[in-house]
């Protein structure tokens, strides 16, 4: 699915990421763990083609998007990637249906087809009947379901999730992780950031970030410390 070679990123003199090497196979479910401020969000923003200012090489499906124009980047983001952001990031003035519909606004599909796709994911995440509700009228778990529905409505190949359970209790976290597992079983590649090892257990593989460096197992992290 993707291959990262020696990626680095700095803000002025401050180095956020360095020497990152990572490979993710098609259909894999990867968890990225690390303490706050270690660079997790920064890394997945690069992987999600949201941040283009980095050094090193990043190939998504064997193709580099470093020097691609904005229109093409937008199209890839809309068609192939699905994001679940930290703190849901829903539009508070839009209802559930309208929030989920957003990625479809920018794709060239028939209106009836779009409607079908939205209704389909609403059912998948268990929000049937809540279409007309605003985010403020939903629980945290329900809001995260909306965010997941929005991420998968375009049937992306790769889902990038930043702390999808960060604001949820353990029971709700479990429900959300079950949705992710189902998606992964259906063939979607998932990269998920979390600081909760129980949540990370749902993934096939876990990598660790400390101070901008990537480690493949906890032992090598301890050696670093």
């Amino acid at each position: 699915m993707l291959k990262v070679t020696d990626i680095g990123k700095t803000y002025g003199k401050f180095t956020v990421l360095q020497n990152i090497d990572l490979e993710v196979a098609d259909g894999e479910f990867l968890a990225i763990m690390g303490p706050s401020g270690s660079g997790k969000s920064t890394l997945i923003n690069i992987l999600g083609l949201l941040d283009q200012s980095y050094t090193g090489e990043y190939l998504l499906e064997s193709k580099s998007y470093k020097d691609v124009n904005d229109n093409e980047l937008s199209q890839i983001r809309g068609d192939q990637l699905g994001f679940v952001f930290q703190n849901f990031k829903l539009l508070t003035t839009y209802n559930v249906y309208e929030n989920i519909e957003i990625p479809l606004i920018y794709s060239k599909k028939k209106q009836s087809k779009k409607h079908e796709m939205v209704e389909d994911v609403i059912e998948k995440v268990g929000l049937t009947g809540k279409e007309k509700n605003r985010p403020a009228e939903l629980s945290g778990g329900q809001q995260q379901r909306v965010a997941i529905a929005r991420a998968i409505v375009n049937r992306p190949k790769l889902i990038i999730a930043d702390e999808p359970t960060g604001a949820l209790d353990s029971k709700t976290s479990k429900e959300i992780m079950e949705i992710f597992t189902k998606l992964n079983q259906a063939g979607t590649t998932i990269i998920m950031v979390t600081h909760d090892s129980e949540v990370a257990n749902y993934a096939m593989r876990t990598v660790y970030i400390r101070d901008g460096r990537l480690y493949n197992d906890e032992k090598s992290v301890k050696n670093h410390d």
Binding site: G48, L50, D70, N71, S74, Q75, R77, G78, D79, F83, F85, K89, L91, I102, P103, I105, Y106, S107, R150, N154
Partner: peptide, 16 residues
């Protein structure tokens, strides 16, 4: 700004 960011992440071009 948040709305713009979300739309951009989900496929809106800067022209959109």
């Amino acid at each position: 700004r948040k709305e713009i960011g979300i739309r951009r992440a989900f496929g809106a071009t800067s022209g959109d």
